[in-house]
Amino acid sequence: MDTNLRFSMLNRDLPAAIDRKGKDPMVAREVQYYQENFSKVETVDDLLDDYRLYTFMMKTMGMEDMAYAKGMVRKALVEGTEDPEALANTLDDGRFKELAETFPFNKDGTIKGKMDWTDENLDEKIVRYTNVPGEEIDDVDRLADYFQQKMPRKDVIFHVQLLADPALYKVVASAFDVPSEIIDGPKEERIAWFEENIDLDELKKPAELKDTIAKYRDNVETRAEENTKDIIERYIQVNFEAEEGEQNEGVRMALNFQRTAGDITSAFDILGSPALYQVVRTVLGMSESMVGTDIDRQAAVINEKFDIEKFQDPEEVEKFVKKFVVLYDGLNGAADVPTVQLFAGNPAAGISESVLTAVNALKFGG
Rank of each mutant, 00 (worst) to 15 (best):
Met61Trp: 03
Ala361Phe: 04
Tyr235Phe: 15
Val280Ile: 08
Thr212Trp: 05
Glu241Trp: 07
Arg190Pro: 02
Asn106Pro: 02
Gln278Asp: 09
Glu318Asn: 14
Glu353Val: 12
Leu276Cys: 01
Ser39His: 13
Val178Trp: 02
Glu221Asp: 14
Ala192Glu: 14
Thr222Ala: 13
Arg142Pro: 13
Ala334Gln: 08
Val156Cys: 01
Thr90Asn: 06
Met115Ser: 06
Leu276Arg: 08
Glu241Met: 13
Val355Ala: 00
Ile111Ser: 07
Leu14Phe: 09
Thr3Ser: 14
Asn360Cys: 04
Glu79Leu: 01
Tyr33Lys: 10
Met63His: 09
Arg74Met: 10
Ala28Val: 05
Val156Ser: 00
Gly272Asn: 03
Leu47Pro: 12
Ile191Tyr: 10
Ser354Phe: 01
Phe257Glu: 06
Ile302Val: 14
Ala242Tyr: 04
Lys75Thr: 14
Ala175Glu: 12
Phe7Pro: 00
Ala167Val: 09
Glu202Ile: 04
Trp117Ile: 11
Ile157Lys: 14
Asp145Pro: 00
Ile126Asp: 05
Ser39Pro: 00
Val291Asn: 02
Thr282Asp: 06
Glu309Met: 11
Thr130Tyr: 10
Phe306Lys: 11
Gly285His: 01
Asp108Tyr: 08
Asp230Leu: 09
Glu309Ser: 15
Ser174Arg: 13
Ile302Pro: 09
Lys210Phe: 01
Leu162Lys: 04
Leu162Gly: 10
Gln35Thr: 12
Met26Glu: 15
Asn346Ser: 12
Gly250Gln: 08
Asp119Tyr: 10
Tyr235Asn: 05
Leu122Thr: 13
Met290Trp: 06
Asp50Gly: 07
Tyr216His: 12
Thr102Met: 11
Tyr34Lys: 06
Val251Asn: 09
Ala361Gln: 12
Gln298Lys: 04
Glu79Cys: 04
Tyr33Met: 10
Glu188Asn: 11
Asp211Pro: 01
Gly365Phe: 08
Asp336Ile: 00
Leu162Asn: 03
Met26Val: 15
Leu77Ile: 08
Glu208His: 08
Trp117Thr: 10
Tyr68Ile: 10
Thr357Arg: 14
Leu200Gln: 08
Lys363Leu: 13
Gln341Glu: 11
Ser287Cys: 03
Ala17Met: 10
Glu188Phe: 10
Lys23Gly: 04
Phe103Leu: 08
Asp49Glu: 14
Ala175Cys: 13
Gln149Arg: 14
Lys322Cys: 00
Ile183Val: 05
Gly285Lys: 05
Glu353Ile: 10
Asp263His: 06
Ala224Asp: 14
Met286Asp: 01
Ala242Thr: 06
Trp193Ser: 05
Ser354Lys: 12
Phe176Ser: 01
Leu48Glu: 09
Gly80Met: 02
Asp294Ala: 06
Ala175His: 12
Asp218Met: 11
Ile264Gly: 04
Thr118Ala: 13
Phe176Asp: 05
Ala67Glu: 14
Tyr216Glu: 06
Glu189Ala: 15
Val171Arg: 13
Leu342Lys: 02
Leu10His: 05
Pro314Phe: 05
Pro274Lys: 11
Arg259Cys: 02
Asp116Gly: 11
Ala76Cys: 15
Asn256Lys: 08
Asn89Pro: 02
Lys107Glu: 07
Gly333Met: 00
Val220Pro: 02
Lys229His: 09
Gly109Cys: 09
Lys40Ser: 13
Phe240Gly: 07
Glu202Cys: 00
Tyr216Arg: 07
Asp177Leu: 12
Pro133His: 08
Val337Ile: 09
Phe324Ser: 07
